[in-house]
């Protein structure tokens, strides 16, 4: 060997086996569909914040939660307005309306943890070993790769707005929504489309399509961290199910 080393990262999330992270993500993605109890959802959300925290992507998390909170508050407002028009559209319990938004927040945390701590090479390796059909495998890989690329684009667009208009903030978003859409959303959409195309071309040039004997040049070993992560996941799932059953 050459003595050259490759380090994926220094936090515990980066040291977890990619297969462990993928399994946890898939397992809870299915579980959350059946969880309707708010307490159980809050527990899941809290645990997911703890899970993603080592990445220290606070800004991305706060922006994500901010958008979800904005949508939640909007839904309460419109629900109340509809309630004024007709009783049958009457407002549900505000707390009850929180359920889908908590689910989305939970999934954002899991997706961020998986995509930002694993790297597309390792994810491709794991997905190849799962022998997924091509129509699932290829789009999944491109989506995983798209997340960091899109986050980088948003960062650059934000900097350019800052250069031209000063710091874009919530006030500008509310008072000048059309300008905000033009400055932020249009370049973001253009970049998203272009990135998707570029990533597809890059994937094709790497020969990702149609090869089944992929290997991993830096194989990941199973460690005590993976055992702990799996055990904690099972405890969490049991707790969540307990609260869900209680509610029934």
């Amino acid at each position: 060997m050459t003595g050259m080393q490759f380090h994926a990262g220094d936090n515990y999330l980066s040291k977890l086996n990619t297969l462990t992270k993928l399994t946890i993500t898939l397992f809870f993605s299915v579980l959350i569909v059946f969880v309707k109890n708010e307490t159980a959802l809050f527990i899941l959300f809290g645990a997911s914040v703890f899970y993603v925290a080592p990445l220290k992507r606070w800004k991305a998390m706060v922006i994500g939660y901010g958008i979800i909170l904005f949508m939640y508050l909007s839904s309460i407002l419109f629900s109340a307005l509809l309630g004024l028009i007709a009783d049958r559209f009457g407002a549900k319990e505000n707390f009850q309306m929180l359920v889908p938004f908590l689910r989305v927040s939970f999934m954002i945390n899991l997706s961020l943890a998986l995509t930002l701590s694993s790297g597309v090479r390792r994810l491709t390796n794991v997905l190849k070993t799962l022998k997924l059909p091509r129509f699932i495998f290829l789009p999944t890989i491109v989506v995983f790769r798209f997340v960091p690329s899109f986050m980088n684009d948003i960062k650059q667009i934000h900097q350019n707005i800052k250069l031209r208009m000063g710091n874009p903030n919530l006030g500008m978003m509310i008072t000048r929504p059309r300008l905000f859409i033009r400055l932020m959303i249009v370049p973001a959409v253009v970049r998203a489309l272009r990135s998707a195309e570029e990533l597809s071309v890059a994937a094709e040039l790497k020969g990702i399509d149609g090869v089944d004997n992929m290997i991993n040049s830096t194989p990941e070993l199973w460690s005590w961290r993976d055992t702990v992560a799996f055990s904690l996941s099972l405890v969490l799932a049991a707790t969540v199910l307990y609260f869900s059953m209680e509610a029934v």
Binding site: T124, A202, K206, M214
Partner: peptide, 28 residues
Amino acid sequence: EQQFFCNDVYSELAFADEVRGVDPKLIY
């Protein structure tokens, strides 16, 4: 940047050979 598929430099250099199943020692 148009031709990068991986997020880090080592992966970008190793990925295409991994996909083709080249011996890890040789890739390294």
